[in-house]
Structure formats: structure tokens, C-alpha cells
Design a protein around this nucleic acid. Structure first.
Lengths: 97, 97
DNA sequence: CTGAATCCTTAGGGATACTG
DNA sequence: CAGTATCCCTAAGGATTCAG
């Protein structure tokens, strides 16, 4: 329970949510989706997720640098957790003070 | 999604988890379950949950003071979210660095 | 474009003491 | 027992700069 929370806390659940949807995302794409998350914070969260074996990072060197991220098989096991969160949010979002 | 996270972050998911199980808990019971959560922090989290309509607080005055907490009907709608988190934690807890 | 490093400020949260 | 208020300190995280 607490361990699950460590994995999905902060921006991580949102990142995973997008990776479940898009399959693959560049750093910039994620930055675009997570408007309120700074570049520094995004990088930290991605590092955590990679360290925990949730996501895999791929680096491509063209003239410039391009990386992308995708869920590992292990990361995909979080799908039920993330979707149940997303569903609850969709249904009960109006309940705000 | 983000809104869901606001509701279950920190100790809140653990609190909800116990309330789903026990139905009713006194402040002291929760304090006992959440060993690493200070009394101050527990009170803050409970305040948040009450403000968001997730839990209901009942106060009983005997010679001393006794309060208990239980989930509201709205709070119970979080059950799928909490149990999917708990299940994932049970299965993949070994994955630690 | 994708990050890591450094600096700097704020607020999250513990310890303690006080109330009913 | 169940909380609130105050003090105080650490660390989370933004802004900015440097690097590949």
C-alpha cells in the first residue's frame, strides 16, 4: 500500500497515465502534457520511475539529442491502479470545494 | 487523475484503507496503525478527508473524549482505487532496491 | 533537445506544550 | 483521549545556468 503510493505519488501517476495511452513519449511531449511540472521535477520523477523499473529510457543521438520513455512490462502491471484512479477522477471531479 | 491523487496522497490512502476494513476507527486506533505518522499529521490528514467529504467524524463525550471516523457514502466510492493499490502493493512489494 | 548542478526560498512536518 | 497552536528546522522544489 505505502509502496504503491511511493510509485504513483506526485507527477508519477500522470506520467504513467500518458505512457499507458501513448505507449512512447519524448521528454518534450511529457513536458507539454504536465504543464505545471517543471523540467527539473519531471527529470527527477522520470529518474525515480526508471530506477524503480517502471519505465525504460531510450536515447537517440541525431544532430541533436532525442530521448523517449516507455513503460516496462513491470510498469504495465500498474495499469489497473492508474485507470481506477483516472476513472474515479472523471466521475467525481465535480466534488470540489 | 490529479484530483484523485490529492485525495489519496500521503497517509490518506492508508487511512481510507483501514476505514474500508474496520468500518469505524477511533483516533487512537488509526494512530496505532499508522506508526510513522505523527499525531499532528494524522489530525491534518483527517481534517482534509473530512473537508473533502470522504470521511465523517463522530464525537462522543463520556468522562473523557472519544471520537470515531468512518467513510461517507462518497468516500466508499474510492474502494476500487484503494484496493487496486493495495493489491499491487501485495504482489510487487518484493521489487525494492 | 535533454538533462545535471547550484543556489535560494518556502512550506511541510516534527517536537513540544497547552486545551477541553 | 483527541486535538490545536507555536516554534523551528530540514528538505522539497523553482529559477537559472552549464553541458552533451
Amino acid at each position: 500500500m505505502e509502496s504503491t503510493l511511493q510509485i504513483i505519488c506526485k507527477w508519477k501517476s500522470v506520467i504513467i497515465y500518458h505512457l499507458l495511452d501513448k505507449k512512447v513519449c519524448h521528454f518534450g511531449q511529457l513536458q507539454h502534457e504536465l504543464k505545471d511540472c517543471s523540467r527539473r521535477m519531471l527529470a527527477l520523477q522520470l529518474n525515480d520511475l526508471e530506477k524503480d523499473g517502471i519505465i525504460k529510457k531510450n536515447i537517440h543521438q541525431f544532430n541533436s539529442l532525442k530521448t523517449d520513455y516507455q513503460l516496462t512490462e513491470f510498469g504495465k502491471t500498474l495499469e489497473p491502479v492508474i485507470t481506477s484512479m483516472a476513472n474515479w477522477g472523471k466521475i467525481y471531479n465535480q466534488k470540489r470545494s
